[in-house]
Design a protein around this nucleic acid. Structure first.
Length: 420
RNA sequence: GCGGAAUUGGUGAAGUGGUUAACACGGCGGAUUGUGGCUCCGUUAUGCAAGGGUUCGACUCCCUUAUUUCGCCCCA
């Protein structure tokens, strides 16, 4: 038997209902906020992610699906959504002819070669938004707010924001120097991973869990001491905007994110819903002011976030937030095989009239058909039999009350309208 | 990439080195040939992840591989 590749899954049964539900709510909230849908390829030139996401990030160094296509091109399956969208903005010159911000939402599969775990796959889905334009703490607040509203619409309670200010590139360079110096003094105390990070991505040492309890960790230099006045002012404005929108936040100086391109605000959505022990980060994002320029575009700042669909679905499922019961309006049950063609016509007409119908085409006994009707949670059954057909009628049965009445086919839809 | 635990019908699963692999749900057939949800009866894995090995004999013991799962790393 051929089985699905490691780390992939088939979306089935109630999971597919949840998927449609979460996606529908996502499209709705993005549209309400006037974001435009954008879809970019699932694979791109490898260099896009190397330059965009960052050469030294774990995502690029050990998690991408890289391959050469038959034309000997270096191709990478996208590990995240932002780089492709920035590429599309530049390539299609979407920044021209616009007076306001460019606002896009997306969803789709991403690929990372990782060891699978619960809620984490090699092919997974992300829902995200990106806004391009001048740096503005109002835009950042709108972006963060959209996420909050989305989670609220899914009935996930107690969503708060963890936020940090990474400053500008220059600020971070200054801080990095001091941080590396400090860490080198304590090099023998560092864990193996952090020793490597010292060379590649020292900021990541800040959220190292192994070293978090050690003494030197407590006196670590703080990034907030190295941020320019401009950066501080921006961040304070952003925080006051969050307050104005009644968004609860917590400043977390240890919050650094895995992608190189973030500037100024980085944030994560955290839920403290007590029904979810542990794993509480549901979404992350931030501002990237240099990414568009670095990828060859104009000087255009961006901000956005991405939700991991599978993780969100796990939460929604464990909290029982989506009604996964399926119902239909009408079940069309021909009594005898020779009535199946009548069933086809009557059922199709009812669908045209707007009723959700299931038509039974099976050559099986009538009892099974009625049994199936109730298993499908049909509200009504239309029973098609010889006797009634003689005067162009069928039997309409209310499956809850068990009441049934003979009714002319011409009046069937009208009769159903009254009851729905 | 590292460490632990698993893998038995469509599903949830019990089980033993020795001829019939429990039980339940679901499916199908029937009691009830034009009426469902309840009840009762019958039926439903020549097979226990795959491949090797040990053995008179392996679903059971050993090895390898695959996959799943829990954690680390990382992240969404």
């Amino acid at each position: 038997m051929i089985t699905r590749p490691k780390g992939t899954y088939d979306l089935l049964k109630e999971d597919s209902i949840i998927y449609n539900n979460l996606l529908g709510a996502w499209i709705e909230i993005c549209d309400l906020n006037n974001y435009k849908f954008i879809k970019t390829p699932t694979f791109e030139a490898s260099s896009l992610f190397h330059r965009g996401v960052g050469e030294t990030t774990d995502i690029v160094t050990k998690e991408t699906y890289d391959f050469k296509d038959r034309g000997n091109r270096d191709i990478t399956l996208r590990p995240e959504g932002t780089a492709g969208i920035v590429r599309a903005i530049i390539e299609n010159k979407l920044y021209a002819n616009t007076n306001n911000y460019l606002k896009y939402y997306y969803y789709g599969p991403m690929f990372r070669y990782e060891r699978p775990q619960s809620g984490r796959f090699r092919e997974f889905n992300q829902l995200g938004i990106e806004v391009f334009g001048n740096v503005s703490p109002y835009v950042d607040a709108e972006v963060i707010n959209l996420g909050i509203k989305y989670f609220n619409s899914l009935k996930i309670d107690n969503v708060t924001i963890k936020i940090n200010n990474l400053g500008s590139k220059e600020d971070r360079e200054k801080y990095k120097k001091v941080l590396v110096e400090y860490l080198k003094k304590h090099e023998d105390e560092l864990c193996e991973d952090c020793k490597t990070r010292l060379e590649t991505n020292p900021l990541r040492a800040l959220d190292c869990k192994k070293d978090a309890d050690k003494e030197f960790f407590k006196n670590m230099p703080k990034i907030s001491d190295y941020i320019s006045d401009e950066g501080k002012k921006y961040f304070e404005e952003l925080l006051s905007n969050l307050e104005a929108l009644d968004i609860e936040y917590e400043i977390d100086e240890k919050l650094v994110r895995g992608l190189d391109y973030y500037d100024y605000a980085v944030f994560e959505y955290v839920t403290s819903d007590e029904r979810l022990a542990g794993a509480s980060t549901i979404c992350g994002g931030g501002r990237y002011n240099n990414l568009v320029k670095n990828l060859g575009g104009p000087d255009l700042a961006g901000v956005g976030f991405a939700v991991g669909y599978e993780r969100l679905a796990t939460i929604v499922k464990s909290l029982d937030l989506v009604d996964v019961n399926e119902t239909i309006d009408v079940y069309i049950a021909p009594i005898d095989a020779k009535n199946i063609s009548d069933a086809l016509i009557i059922g199709t007409d009812l669908r045209d009239a707007g009723f959700k119908c299931e038509i039974d085409y099976r050559d099986t006994n009538f009892k099974n058909k009625m049994s199936t009707a109730s298993k499908m949670n049909a509200a009504y059954a239309v029973i098609i039999g010889e006797e009634e057909l003689k005067d162009y009628s069928v039997v309409l049965k209310d499956l809850k009350t068990k009441e049934e009445k003979k009714i002319s086919i011409n009046n069937l839809a009208d009769e159903l309208y009254i009851n729905f």
